[in-house]
Write a protein that binds this DNA or RNA. Structure first.
Length: 837
DNA sequence: GTCAACAGCGCG
DNA sequence: AAAGCGCGCTGTTGAC
């Protein structure tokens, strides 16, 4: 032994058998030299346990991993290490081609070492070992590989990026240890199956006593409005009133082929209902889904605590599923159901699965309740109880109600879109030669054919390419609209013009009209799903129905009401049915106002205090024109300047966005001038940027004025680019969070007020800083002032201790259709006489 | 046929 | 060295 390099500790036997120091199979070898080429396994010659990583670990990395394993109970002397990629080359990112190139080495190593248990760390190791991709989905699921069992988990380096994952990682290792020791078999899980009338009586008696319950239902799909929609089973875990006693777990078979109640499931449900509804505290994981279904079948349960919303409020980066959370926080063995279709799964399995869900939900509830009790989490608790939980109730109804759609208009506009598309395609076809350039089919969507057509057949120059391929070859010529516009500008061609025009109609046809037409129900309503945990800033996301049951894209299309084109042609198909009005209430420039408040930007605060328009002010600076001569277009450009530079946009990026978003050519000098103008106008913003950078470097997190937290561990990244990204996020997050919470809170308060007054007016959704309502015409005179008042005068001081000293303005539009609504003046709002007046 | 990754584009 | 932020959906492609 001369020197102790990692190479020296390579398994000599395996090395001799497997290693090719001249290997050039993957791209990684180009940056590896000598002993870093084709690094084979290290550790004992034969071992029962093997750890596979993406790249060969250093001695330090192996030691760290052994510590993790030892902590989980694994004997560290029986562990061999190897990697999916054999060469050490830090700057190159291996792709699937590289992984495959290295796979034969890995196969031979596994054969030689003969492990019975393999821990696959990260997506790459998992891919090479079991051919699966998507580590967050497959982690914790055991795969057989010859004589070995493979447990994939996340790579420890992911924990560095996202500390919220640490718990799950450690739980996986503990489970790995149980696997090795052969004690990972089924544990007894006791629950009462409510299968006889006597059971029903016992269950009701238990419900009557209960103070706290966790519940969950299993359904036969994601769409409660489907004609065959049914609840397959209902489970409840009742917390004992005596704290020392174990919870009691109940599962009621409903519409399952094996259920004794399969023909009377609705009667059984309605018999249980009054007692189920009377339990004071009801906990569920993503209970919005369960409540929607229960309401569809007549059970009006309200939630008091949602563990998914709690998890997200406490840590926005954490996985939100019940299973990963239970694994991480309760250390439970993964539980799953064998098939996708619950009615094809034996009843016993369904009930046990359903029962476990509620049992672990109660476990999570106890943990989160404890965490919310900590003084450090006091502000998060307020967000949770005052915004998140009320929103869950509101969106339960919003999703059930849906948005009314003018189906006639929708069908007309859809056929117009299809006709436009056909006409464009027909003309484009005249430019295509007989042989189609050797391509099988003509396809004017961004495709290999379209690229051949533009760049080879028409011979137009390539201005930009997509990302380089895995093997380092240059990416495909870009067909992005901005590039096409640029091309059309310099090399005008009728075909190019048509292709550019086509993009819009293609999108309208496929992404919008066809999806809407498919989703609209017999009452002319489209139901969508709002995810309350869909973003890291607290904004909502909207789209597909949430379901872990239907994964196929075709069967699970969704309508995203937050990306409806701002174009009457599309937006105008949504609205209110006859007799009601569509009201859009928009927070005016709320992010800028909030940024001015947070940054204490005195000029900006003053502009708002005196009722001036910042975008127009910036347009005046940019054009040198007086306010009354600034055009709409110039104001729009100024808006881009304001938002871009506010959040740290650079000079080059501005040139790009000015062109691609606004069709304006800006020189580098002009861009610099705009940026300078912006920060000269609002000098405090730069100091605020600096402050946020300092804060995030110190605490690895930032907080919004209301207390929503964004964790940004990436500020410590060794990569400058990643670090800067985290810093920009630290600047943007508190602003976006605050603005979004204001919209949500105002929606909560407006809805409460509507309810207090016994009105039927209700929200139909939010679009980040706007709330849309459907309001019966006779309620407008009462509803409009409620909306405006609540949005502009939120009791932030009383509820959150925040004195927001910048004027907040809500603009209201009233009409029958979303696109065509008319903006109304405050005078009209407070003295409503109808639109005609 | 399914899956995952990517590009492109819709919204705030 | 280079740098707005936050999302979801569709189509294409290549791998299995």
């Amino acid at each position: 032994m001369t020197e102790a390099t990692p190479l020296d500790r390579m398994n000599a036997e395996v090395q001799l058998l497997v290693r090719d120091p001249q290997c050039e199979l993957c791209k990684m070898h180009t940056q590896a030299q000598g002993k870093d080429v084709c690094v084979t396994a290290s550790g004992p010659a034969r071992a029962d346990v093997m750890v596979v990583t993406k790249s060969p670990l250093s001695a330090k990395g192996r030691k760290e991993m052994l510590t993790y394993l030892e902590r989980a109970g694994v004997d560290p002397t029986d562990v061999a290490f190897t990697a999916a990629i054999k060469c050490r080359a830090w700057d190159l990112d291996p792709g699937k081609t590289d992984l495959k190139a290295c796979r034969p080495y890995l196969d031979r190593e596994v054969e030689a070492i003969g492990p019975k248990f393999i821990l696959a760390l990260g997506n790459e190791a998992m891919f090479s070992l079991v051919g699966k991709s998507g580590i967050m989905k497959h982690r914790g699921v055991v795969y057989e590989r010859g004589n070995a069992r493979v447990l994939p988990t996340i790579s420890p380096s992911m924990i560095y990026r996202n500390p919220g994952l640490k718990g799950g990682f450690e739980a996986d290792l503990k489970y790995f240890d149980r696997m090795i020791r052969g004690v990972d078999g089924e544990e007894e899980f006791a629950y009462h199956s409510v299968s006889t009338l006597g059971d029903v009586r016992l269950f009701i008696a238990a419900l009557k006593q209960a103070e706290v319950m966790a519940f969950d239902i299993e359904t036969n799909g994601y769409d409660e409005f489907a004609p065959d929609a049914a609840i397959v089973s209902l489970a409840v875990t009742l917390a004992p009133n005596d704290p020392g006693a174990p919870p009691s777990v109940w599962a009621v078979p409903l519409m399952h082929p094996g259920s004794p109640w399969r023909r009377q499931w609705r009667q059984v449900l309605s018999k249980i209902q009054p007692y189920f509804n009377a339990v004071p505290k009801a906990i569920a994981h993503n209970g919005k889904f369960d409540c929607r279904w229960l309401r569809q079948f007549g059970v009006m349960r309200t939630l008091t605590f949602d563990t998914m919303l709690a998890a997200h409020t406490l840590d926005e980066n954490r996985p939100k599923g019940l299973k990963p959370l239970a694994q991480q926080l309760l250390g439970v063995k993964p539980w799953a159901i064998s098939t996708k279709d619950l009615v094809d799964t034996p009843l016993g399995e369904v009930l046990e699965y359903n029962a476990k869900d509620t049992f672990y939900t109660l476990g999570l509830y106890r943990i989160f309740k404890g965490q919310f009790g900590l003084p450090a989490n006091k502000r998060k608790l307020r967000i949770f109880t005052r915004i998140m939980m009320p929103c869950s109730e509101i969106f339960t109804e919003v999703e059930r109600e849906g948005v009314w759609t003018d189906t006639e208009k929708m069908m007309t506009h859809w056929s117009i879109a299809k006709r436009e598309l056909e006409a464009i395609d027909a003309e484009l076809l005249t430019f295509v030669p007989e042989d189609k350039g050797g391509h099988k089919a003509v396809n004017f969507n961004p495709s290999n054919f379209a690229r051949w057509f533009i760049f080879e057949h028409l011979g137009l120059p390539v201005f930009a390419r997509g990302k380089d391929a895995d093997d380092g070859s240059p990416g495909q010529p870009s067909m992005a609209e901005a590039i096409m516009l640029d091309l059309q500008d310099k090399h005008p061609h009728r075909a190019l013009e048509l292709l550019i025009e086509r993009t819009k109609w293609q999108k309208y046809d496929s992404a919008f009209f066809s999806a809407y037409a498919e989703q609209v129900d017999e009452n002319d309503r489209i139901h969508t799903t709002f995810k309350l945990t869909g973003t890291v800033t607290g904004r909502l996301s909207s789209g597909k129905p949430d379901s872990d049951k239907v994964t196929s894209r075709k069967q699970n299309r969704g309508v995203n009401l937050q990306q409806v084109p701002r174009d009457d042609f599309v937006r105008g198909i949504f609205g209110a049915p006859p007799g009601s009005s569509f009201v859009e209430a928009d927070y005016s420039q709320v992010e800028l106002r909030v940024a001015a408040f947070i940054a204490r930007e005195t000029t900006m605060l003053h502009l708002y205090a005196t009722g001036q328009d910042i975008h127009t002010t910036m347009a005046m600076k940019m054009t040198g024109k007086p306010a009354d001569r600034v055009t709409k277009d110039e104001r729009k450009k100024a808006k881009a300047v304001n938002f871009g530079f506010l959040y740290g946009m650079g000079v080059n990026k501005f040139i790009e966005t000015a062109w691609s978003n606004y069709g304006v050519r800006v020189t580098e000098q002009e861009s610099k001038a705009f940026r300078d103008a912006f920060f000269t106008q609002f000098p405090m913003l730069l100091r605020w940027h600096a402050r946020q950078r300092q804060l995030v470097s110190k605490y690895k997190r930032v907080e919004s004025p209301l207390g929503r937290v964004r964790h940004l561990p990436d500020v410590d990244s060794p990569n400058q680019g990643v670090r800067s990204e985290a810093e920009r996020q630290a600047i943007n997050s508190p602003v976006q969070s605050f603005a979004s919470d204001m919209a949500l809170l105002s929606m909560v308060r407006i809805t409460e007020e509507f309810k207090r007054q016994g009105m039927t007016a209700h929200p139909i959704g939010t679009v980040h800083d706007a709330i849309n309502f459907e309001i019966p015409d006779e309620e407008l005179s009462v509803a409009l002032p409620i909306i405006k008042n609540n949005m502009e005068n939120l009791p932030l001081q009383r509820m959150f201790g925040v004195n927001l000293d910048v004027p907040i303005i809500a603009d209201l539009k009233v009409g029958t259709r979303w696109g065509g609504a008319t903006e109304i003046t405050p005078e009209q709002i407070y003295d409503w006489k109808g639109l005609a007046a």
